[in-house]
């Protein structure tokens, strides 16, 4: 038990430190010691990345460190996932993400993408200034579970409404869960346009997407 706890503690430290090599070595060590890969992922790597997210939220860690941590988790969990009997699905779900047409702000979106990847989602990032019809076409192609859009301007947030309306018009609304974010966007806006969720920041975005996919 102590050995397991020690290893999990080291896993968490490796993630917070963004130490890719250590994170990967610890994953191998866990497999050699015949530990349950799911336990190592959930009680080690997931805990570590959550702590990184908290430190990022408090301004103690910055974006490159967040990415480093995410990379460390990605490599290590790939190893552990491949060892899970029956080859369990490594992705928690497919998320398509874009900044709406007319809006070129992509820094906040980059943070959301990084956190989603770190948390095990399969993410298709369409970038910025993406027309509504392109978002829908790519979502169909990618077979997305969730469509997330970002709008940083009061003048561009109307495109999130256009997306909802087009999804309804095309009979695709029930196929996808939608989540909206960005500085001028609020819960009230999300409700008004018919989006399934609103996220205030990247951390909340991940939690809301987990809930959307699990249906809770």
């Amino acid at each position: 038990m102590t050995e397991t706890n020690d290893l999990l503690k080291k896993v968490i430290e490796s993630v917070i430190g963004g130490d890719e090599a250590a994170a990967e070595a610890l994953a191998r060590q866990a497999l050699e010691q015949k530990m349950d890969p799911l336990q190592v992922i959930n009680e080690g790597y997931v805990v570590g990345i959550k702590q990184v997210g908290d430190l990022f939220e408090c301004g103690e860690l910055f974006l490159p460190e967040l990415i480093q941590a995410a990379e460390a988790v990605k490599k290590a969990t790939e190893l552990l996932n491949s060892a899970i009997t029956g080859g369990a699905e490594s992705s928690k779900g497919k998320v398509l993400i874009a900044t709406v047409e007319g809006d070129i702000h992509d820094i906040g979106k980059a943070i959301v993408v990084s956190l989603l990847v770190a948390n095990g989602f399969n993410v298709l990032d369409l970038g910025r200034d993406v027309p509504t019809l392109d978002i829908i076409a790519k979502a169909e192609e990618f077979k997305a579970d969730v469509i997330g859009t970002s709008a940083l301007l009061t003048t561009t947030m109307v495109k999130q409404k256009e997306l909802e309306e087009t999804l309804v018009k095309e009979g695709l609304k029930s196929k996808y869960k939608t989540i909206v974010g960005g500085a001028p966007v609020t819960v009230r806006w999300a409700e008004k346009i018919g989006a399934d969720a609103y996220a205030e920041n990247a951390g909340e975005g991940v939690n809301k997407i987990i809930k959307l996919i699990s249906g809770s």
């Binding site: 490159p64 990415i67 990379e71 992509d106 979106k109 980059a110 993408v113 990084s114 990032d125 970038g127």
Partner: peptide, 19 residues
Amino acid sequence: DGPCPNAAELLPAGKIAEA
């Protein structure tokens, strides 16, 4: 919009030094 690579694209791809 300009000559330099876009850090907002490089960072999510894990290219920290390049970003």
